[in-house]
Write a protein that binds this DNA or RNA. Structure first.
Lengths: 199, 199
DNA sequence: GCTTGTCAAGCAAGCGCTTGCTTGGTAGCA
DNA sequence: TGCTACCAAGCAAGCGCTTGCTTGACAAGC
């Protein structure tokens, strides 16, 4: 559908990726609808018609941003879980991975766009995104199930997972890089809040 | 600043309020920027220029929606806290009040607009909104402090409050009125999740 | 009882500007 | 010579908002 996955000459300056990054920043800061093609073009020093050489439509740019955000966060969290350990160790590693992708300097605009602007996608693309999200959240549901088996939490229901996702994703609204607290401290704090003291 | 507080003939159909309600629904569903004056006018059976008799600008409509959302939720939660009781009883009442305003049929669009579209306000109006929000969240901080004194929670820091707000406000993203769970059950569930068993 | 004036609450039309997107052309490299 | 990656220009549609005018309700004056 989109003009994705071109072969693209290796290690040359990749303008397409620059467009996607600039779009992610602008979508996150101003919102999808309030961001114009001219804004994006200007941010990468192009004329206003030129981005359409790389993308068929503005919606395709949004889709590229959102899919990259989803892929990055999924990859990081899956890798953290794969390192193994006790249920709590796995859970803590996942927390840290998720928060790092959400709050890190070079990825937070992708995450913010993913969380706040996804609903501007067309139905087909939105469906694709939701499928990815369901896969991702299933990882968390499993982690919660293991925590319960180990006696770390009392309830591993779907609502518990949704509360957790809310608390995590809401950090985008208030976290500031130089605000005194590190991402690691924040991850530790939510772990302490949710898990019973021992076990 | 806005053309508010007109005398307006009592108990006649108040078109201004209809515009605000329609705007809240459209802003919540499509976003501020993607909603046009023509959309709003059509929703209340007007010509596209007519809403400007009631509001000077589109931004003023957003401000009206957002302030009404903020006022409603503050009023409900403050009233819940004022009924008194043990720290946990107060906290549970506040949880229920907050969630009811967020999720109830007739107010959820105001809340959703407040949470997701507030950043489209102009700086002066945004500052006003943030002041209201700070006042509101101070209520919650106090409730958490009382919970800690009573031994119901271990940590009543600012980050704990932000996690709580995240879990609550995120419900807007996933709660569906006929999805099996009542608002009361959801309130109960987050209370159980956060508070230690006894005391 | 009929006219006249006032006012809230719109309508009908459209202005100036911005929007996403298209098109024809071309510089630079292979 | 052909292909990639753009530029310069602009089109049609839609945008927020303005303007001049109408309509219906109500009160005052005679």
């Amino acid at each position: 559908m989109a003009a994705s996955r071109r072969p693209l000459a290796p290690d040359e300056p990749n303008r397409r990726a620059e467009i996607v990054r600039a779009a992610s920043r602008l979508f996150a800061e101003k919102g999808y609808s309030a961001t114009t093609i001219r804004d994006i073009a200007k941010a990468v020093d192009m004329q206003s018609g030129s981005p359409f050489y790389h993308f068929k439509t503005k919606h395709d740019m949004l889709l590229a941003v959102v899919l990259e955000g989803m892929a990055t966060i999924t990859r990081a969290t899956r890798a953290a879980a794969a390192r193994g350990g006790t249920p709590r160790e796995v859970f803590d590693a996942m927390l840290l991975a998720h928060l790092e992708q959400l709050l890190a300097e070079d990825g937070r605009h992708f995450a913010a766009t993913l969380l706040h602007e996804g609903h501007h996608l067309e139905p087909a693309a939105l469906k694709e995104l939701i499928a990815h999200k369901d896969t991702y959240e299933a990882m968390w549901q499993k982690a919660l199930r293991d925590l319960k088996r180990a006696g770390n939490i009392g309830d591993d229901s779907r609502v518990t997972r949704l509360f957790l996702m809310g608390a995590l994703n809401w950090t985008v609204q208030w976290y500031r890089p130089n605000g005194g607290r590190t991402v690691k401290q924040i991850a530790r704090q939510i772990s302490d809040l949710l898990l019973r003291a021992n076990a």
